[in-house]
Amino acid sequence: MFVVGRDRGTADARRLNGPDKKNGRLVIFGLCYVIMTSDMESARRRANPSKQENRKDDPMRKLLLATLAAAVPATMALAQSAEDTVKARQGFFQLVGFETGGLAAMAKGDVDYDAEAASAHAADLSALISLHVADYFAPGTSNADLPGKTRALPVIWEDTDGFMERVQALNAAVDTMAGAAGGGLDALRPAMGQLGGACKACHDDYRAKSF
């Protein structure tokens, strides 16, 4: 799915996404959203340049968001195959791993500690875990369903409570990291231990050791 940036020209975006019929509906929704919200914003700025914090309470914006939220999963459910879901899941964990790897390199001393870079990694992790990951774990996407493509064990869907506990542990570790990453190496290290421990605890029971 393409995310169209506000600064990108709409003609440019149409050219980019035009021929892709699969993504067409999503793109149109996205473009409508971008155009309407930016129009609303500029109109509001003209009317009341000092009050930008009211954006979130705007009823029109709420309606748009609600429509978008309802439309996107419905469209996705039609478009996404089990393989696509596995790819999205792996892409998600690739990003989680990339950000965690950056923090781990500092915690281990492989690269020099940099408060700004560490905070950025931690902020990105917080952003990642705020995604609605449930659809990345759609039923029918275990390594029993797709041998050789994923290491996600069927027990994820059989022991949902246990799996959710591990997810909560990861969320807690990411929250700890968000508070610790910028506070020096001595704060980063124990937070890294908690974060890596959350990775391990889930890999042990819910991820196969090989494809």
């Binding site: 791993g97 790897g101 923090l103 781990a104 974060l195 890596g196 990775c199 391990k200 890999h203």
Partner: peptide, 16 residues
């Protein structure tokens, strides 16, 4: 073999 496999393992948890 066990020691070698441990030395070479990457459980992708960034701490072990």
């Amino acid at each position: 073999m066990q020691v070698a496999s441990g030395l070479l393992s990457d459980p992708e948890d960034y701490i072990n």
